[in-house]
Amino acid sequence: MSDLSVDGARILDRGYRRFEGQRSGVRGAVRSLVWHTTRSILGLGRPARHKIFPVIVVLVSFMPALVFLGIAALFGDLLDDQIRPEYWEFFGFSFVATLLFASMIAPEAIVRDRRDKMFSLYLSTPLTKPSYLVAKAIAVLGTMSLVVAAPPILWLLGYTFQSLGPDGVGEWLGVMGRIVLTGVAICALYGAVSLAAASLTDRRAFASIAVVFVLLGASIAVNVLIESADASSTIRLFDPLALGLEIAPRMFGDRSVDFDEIPTAQVAAAIVGWISVGIAVIVTRYRKLAAV
């Protein structure tokens, strides 16, 4: 048996004491709030029931990529180009998961803080209203990208490892770049709309309904107008849901049938417009919120 005696050992009771180190300031506060919000959205560090929904949504969003990768692993080159989906099509596969996630994460990110009065506590720290909102937006967009951009990236990496990916480093980087840009654009569009809808109510359930209502309701209204009133297809620019789905084909040099007659510049302007309106709603709402 080894000698475990340590002469002079004592229990160190530090207790409450002064802090002599450096404080991280606004940047550290934003970083901490981003991490805390991301954990909260994904249910990490919370009871199991809070993990169920995000885990299911994330699994659903990854399912098509995993299925096609499994098929590719089993049958390899035998997988016909007609059957094999384009990279941008994966953004469409995770459409339902994206909608569900958007309706869940924005309310979780900002409604809870107003209800629990954490918002006023945060403003007693180095955070300001703008830096608070920036932190929340980063957390929402980052988490949303898990459902929006991660599956196509997984698909690309899987195909690359099976030697079925793009030819050459340049083409590979081009595909990866377009996937990332598409993901950022979709997350910015849906994130801005869902955060704006969630900023208007202090009840999370209502906020989730509001997000679905804005995204799905606008889409239904636009389709009804086109089908029954024979409205111009340009009106589709007022449909944020379809607009988000149009980003991927445009980024890869294609376009969907519904948006065939609409130039890319108009699509881009509409996306910027929706994001701007969302930001304006959020800023107006939070400017009026009393801090203390």
Binding site: R23, G25, R46, R115, D116, S120, L121, P126
Partner: peptide
Amino acid sequence: AALRCLLGYGPEHHVLPDE
């Protein structure tokens, strides 16, 4: 922001994140 690094604040309300 720099000032509030050095301040602590205890609000009047008792509402805190329950979970």
